[in-house]
C-alpha cells in the first residue's frame, strides 16, 4: 500500500478537498445552489434572498457567505465549486471573475496570470 493513500487529508496550499467532512457542513448551501439550474429558482432568489435561503435551511455561515457573494467564505462553509458556479451565474460572474475574487487580484491580472502558464 502506497503511504500516500493514507494521507489524503494532508493539506495542499490554497485547496479544500470537498470530501465527506465538507459535504456534511455544506449540504443545504449546495442543495440551494443546485436548484439554480432552473430559471424560476434564480428569479425566486433574486426576489427574496433571505426567504429563499431560509427555505433550504441555510445556517448563518452559509447565509453570510451568500450575502457577501464571497466564494472563499462559501467554500469554507462547505460549498462545492460546481454548485457555487450556479450561484455565481445569477450575478453573471464567470470563472475569471471568481478566480480574481478568490486570489485578490483584478480580473485582468488574473487573466494575465493564466496566459503566463503557457510560456
Amino acid at each position: 500500500m502506497n503511504l500516500d493513500e493514507f494521507d489524503h487529508h494532508t493539506p495542499i496550499e490554497g485547496t479544500t478537498f470537498f470530501d465527506g467532512k465538507m459535504a456534511m457542513i455544506g449540504y443545504p448551501l449546495n442543495k440551494m445552489c443546485f436548484s439554480f439550474n432552473k430559471a424560476a429558482a434564480r428569479e425566486a432568489y433574486l426576489a427574496d434572498p433571505e426567504g429563499y435561503m431560509e427555505s433550504f435551511g441555510l445556517n448563518e455561515a452559509h447565509k453570510a457567505a451568500c450575502r457577501n457573494k464571497n466564494v472563499l467564505e462559501m467554500i469554507a462553509a462547505g460549498g462545492n465549486i460546481y454548485y457555487l458556479a450556479k450561484f455565481a451565474g445569477i450575478f453573471k460572474l464567470n470563472m475569471q471573475d471568481i478566480g480574481a475574487q478568490q486570489t485578490g487580484v483584478t480580473v485582468e491580472e488574473f487573466k494575465e496570470k493564466l496566459c503566463r502558464h503557457g510560456d
Binding site: G14, I75, M95, I98, G99, Q102, T103, L114, G118
Partner: peptide
C-alpha cells in the same frame, strides 16, 4: 485547472 480556493488559476503544463 483549479477553479476554487486561493490556488484558483493553477495550471501545470
Amino acid at each position: 485547472h483549479q477553479l476554487d480556493g486561493e490556488r484558483a488559476g493553477f495550471i501545470n503544463k
